[in-house]
Amino acid sequence: MRKTLSFLFSLWKTNLLSAMEYRVAFLLQVFGMMLNNAFYFLFWVIFFDRFEQVNGWALEDMFMLFGVVAVAFGAGTYLFGNALHLAGIIANGELDYYLSLPKPVLLHMLASRSVASSAGDFLYGLFSFVVAIVVTGEFSTGMLARYLLACVAAMAVVVGFLVLVQSLAFWIGNASLLTGNAVNAIITFSLYPITLFDGTAKLLLFTVIPAAFVGALPAQFVRTFDWASLGQLLLGAIVFLGLAIVVFYRGLRRYESGSAIQVRM
């Protein structure tokens, strides 16, 4: 376990150092993404300015929601950046490189890339969380601990879901469009108040597109502790990560490559 963690830290350090080689481009992407998220959030500012509440949700709830989703998505795709590119890696036979090395294939492959703009998502999420605290005036160390736990659980669901969907490339070949739609779906649904959706839709958001585990549920858990929410959060994280690992390694048995020569720099 310690060896694996140390390996992961080495990979993340290498990713950061290589990003620092193109410092201006990296910073442009980070701050660009923060601005991008802020402009997107303007929609909710305008919306709640006009309508005040939607089924019990107000602007401060949206700050908290963005605080969780952006941190979870940002951390997940920064630390495990290849989760966004897995389908292409499988389809192009680029898993060969990881298979030939004595490290856990999935973990090694996922952590081998850090998406620069995801660091912007992460920072924006922290900013949104701070704004939520300022606006509501609610803060405690317990809340901070719940926030950290909720973000880690939501991150596990994001990464698990991305790996799960993209592993379909082992069976169907080119899964890039499916992947694009799945990523769109989980981001879109996680950034809307869950009270907009009725029973059937809610069931879908806890299963097929697990956006509720990424947005509404962790955000609610941060604001108020209850054992049921904690149980659901942990269960969601374990189930989606577990499923992702099982499906990926099942698919890996079917993996074939064309022995293409690949150069990694």
Binding site: Y22, F39, Y40
Partner: peptide
Amino acid sequence: AEEVSAFRWIYQKFLLVLGGLLI
């Protein structure tokens, strides 16, 4: 500038909000 992703994202968000795509 070579890297123009940030300009692109921000332009898209202007369309989303000030363009009237979301509301």
